[in-house]
Amino acid sequence: MQFYRRPQPIGAISFDLDDTLYDNVPVMRKAEAEGYRALCELFPQAQQWTQQQWAERRWQLMRSEADLASDMTLLRLATLKRGLMELGVDETNAKIGAEQGLQAFLAARNQVVVPAQTHEMLSALGQHYPLIAISNGNVDTRVIGLHDYFHQVIQPGDGRRGKPYPDMFAAAQTQLPQLKPGQWLHVGDSPLADVLGAHRVGWQSAWFRGGLYDEQGLIVLPTFAYHDNQTLADFLLD
């Protein structure tokens, strides 16, 4: 572990999900392919753009519309609907098609294999801390077997923006109003969504180095960084 700030007493812990508690990369590769296949079956004109071109359009939309960038479900729906309309599908059917494409994607997206070590860590930590999940993604924690570890699972929707916006952190704080912001520890792999998002609201942060990002992406320093779940659990349970 590497400490960047002096840790303060912890009263509750929140966890990012994707690429923090399990490897989400192979899952997303399969889900993207399945979503594209289903979309092309429903709308043959969708094949005018490759799977990569659809993904590039989604990234462009993410960069241009900040509110969509932190809500993966809305982002995907907007990409599909706008893309289908550009390809000549009327708005009503484009909206229906976007929903159908999303559901095909989600069916594969929720085929996550959670490591036994993650289950062991969450079970052990849950005996000592309230645990909450805060994720910008759209994984279903009930389907992947993690839901029961958490007091609450918070994701974007109904006007609530994703990390690094403060909305989901604020929603977590309402669950334990007796805790001060500095008593919360947020754990995640994203320098922007997790580390910066946590520190903006006065929380501590634990940055998982084994995710998708390297140290060059850090905008602010986390409270500490760690490489594996066992190291994190040993520290938090000491």
Score class of each variant (00 low, 15 high):
residue 2 Q to S: 08
residue 4 Y to M: 06
residue 8 Q to I: 03
residue 12 A to H: 06
residue 15 F to P: 01
residue 16 D to A: 03
residue 16 D to C: 01
residue 18 D to E: 14
residue 19 D to N: 15
residue 21 L to A: 01
residue 21 L to S: 02
residue 21 L to M: 05
residue 22 Y to D: 03
residue 26 P to E: 12
residue 27 V to L: 07
residue 30 K to R: 14
residue 38 A to S: 15
residue 38 A to I: 11
residue 39 L to W: 06
residue 40 C to D: 04
residue 40 C to H: 02
residue 41 E to N: 13
residue 43 F to R: 03
residue 45 Q to R: 12
residue 45 Q to I: 13
residue 47 Q to M: 10
residue 47 Q to D: 10
residue 51 Q to Y: 03
residue 53 Q to I: 09
residue 55 A to S: 13
residue 58 R to G: 07
residue 59 W to R: 15
residue 66 A to M: 03
residue 67 D to H: 13
residue 68 L to W: 13
residue 69 A to R: 12
residue 70 S to N: 09
residue 71 D to P: 05
residue 73 T to A: 12
residue 74 L to P: 01
residue 75 L to I: 11
residue 75 L to V: 07
residue 76 R to P: 03
residue 81 K to F: 02
residue 84 L to W: 11
residue 84 L to D: 03
residue 86 E to A: 15
residue 87 L to H: 06
residue 93 N to W: 14
residue 94 A to M: 06
residue 97 G to N: 08
residue 99 E to S: 10
residue 99 E to W: 06
residue 99 E to H: 11
residue 100 Q to F: 09
residue 102 L to D: 08
residue 104 A to I: 07
residue 104 A to K: 04
residue 104 A to Y: 05
residue 106 L to Y: 07
residue 110 N to V: 02
residue 110 N to D: 15
residue 113 V to L: 14
residue 117 Q to R: 12
residue 120 E to F: 11
residue 121 M to G: 03
residue 123 S to D: 14
residue 125 L to R: 02
residue 126 G to T: 11
residue 127 Q to Y: 00
residue 127 Q to S: 12
residue 128 H to E: 10
residue 129 Y to K: 00
residue 130 P to M: 05
residue 131 L to F: 13
residue 133 A to S: 11
residue 134 I to S: 09
residue 135 S to K: 05
residue 135 S to L: 04
residue 138 N to V: 08
residue 139 V to F: 06
residue 139 V to L: 15
residue 140 D to Q: 08
residue 143 V to C: 13
residue 143 V to Y: 10
residue 143 V to I: 15
residue 145 G to T: 11
residue 145 G to S: 12
residue 145 G to E: 10
residue 145 G to C: 10
residue 147 H to M: 09
residue 148 D to K: 10
residue 150 F to S: 00
residue 150 F to K: 00
residue 151 H to S: 14
residue 151 H to D: 10
residue 152 Q to C: 07
residue 155 Q to I: 08
residue 159 G to A: 09
residue 159 G to T: 10
residue 161 R to N: 09
residue 161 R to S: 09
residue 166 P to Q: 06
residue 167 D to V: 07
residue 169 F to N: 07
residue 169 F to I: 04
residue 170 A to W: 03
residue 174 T to V: 13
residue 174 T to K: 14
residue 175 Q to Y: 08
residue 175 Q to F: 05
residue 176 L to K: 02
residue 177 P to A: 09
residue 179 L to G: 02
residue 179 L to N: 04
residue 180 K to M: 10
residue 180 K to S: 14
residue 181 P to C: 06
residue 182 G to F: 00
residue 187 V to L: 01
residue 190 S to E: 02
residue 192 L to E: 14
residue 196 L to D: 00
residue 197 G to D: 03
residue 198 A to M: 05
residue 200 R to P: 00
residue 201 V to Q: 10
residue 202 G to R: 02
residue 203 W to Q: 08
residue 204 Q to E: 03
residue 204 Q to F: 02
residue 206 A to N: 04
residue 208 F to G: 00
residue 209 R to A: 03
residue 213 Y to R: 08
residue 213 Y to F: 15
residue 216 Q to E: 13
residue 217 G to C: 04
residue 217 G to K: 02
residue 217 G to Q: 07
residue 220 V to G: 08
residue 220 V to A: 10
residue 221 L to M: 13
residue 222 P to V: 01
residue 225 A to P: 06
residue 227 H to E: 15
residue 227 H to L: 08
residue 230 Q to H: 12
residue 236 L to G: 05
residue 236 L to S: 05
residue 237 L to V: 06
